[in-house]
Amino acid sequence: MQYLLLIYRSEAEFGKMDAAARKAKTAEYGAFTQSIIQSGHFKAGDGLQPTTTATTVRVRDGKTLTTDGPFAETREQLGGYYLVEAKDLDTALAIAARIPEATIGSIEVRPVMVYD
């Protein structure tokens, strides 16, 4: 069996953390990731940029509608995910609009965090 582990947290609280606390958190995640790689459980995992960078895509009557911000409907529930490589947001939004669920549900597009 495979399982998707979704991480929820308060962005406001995260934003209040100082540099030392962030560093500690990053180290904690590094150790955790290493441990599940070694135990053979790890398949994939990424941090996401904050919801202020999100765009939500819906296709209705053949038209693509984009909304600034994250998915905020409580009547729809998470049903799946794709991780894609795209050259820019326009390309990612165009792919999102082709996901079958886009015509009845919503697709939230969030950039994945890149560490340099």
């Binding site: 940029q49 202020t52 960078t53 947001l89 326009d90 990612a92 597009v109």
Partner: peptide, 21 residues
């Protein structure tokens, strides 16, 4: 500030869209 951050982090292209868009 958040808008400019979104341009950078979400990869909003700095270009005139293609013909069909």
């Amino acid at each position: 500030l958040r808008a400019k951050q979104k341009i950078r982090l979400a990869g909003i292209p700095y270009e005139v869209p293609e013909r069909e868009m």
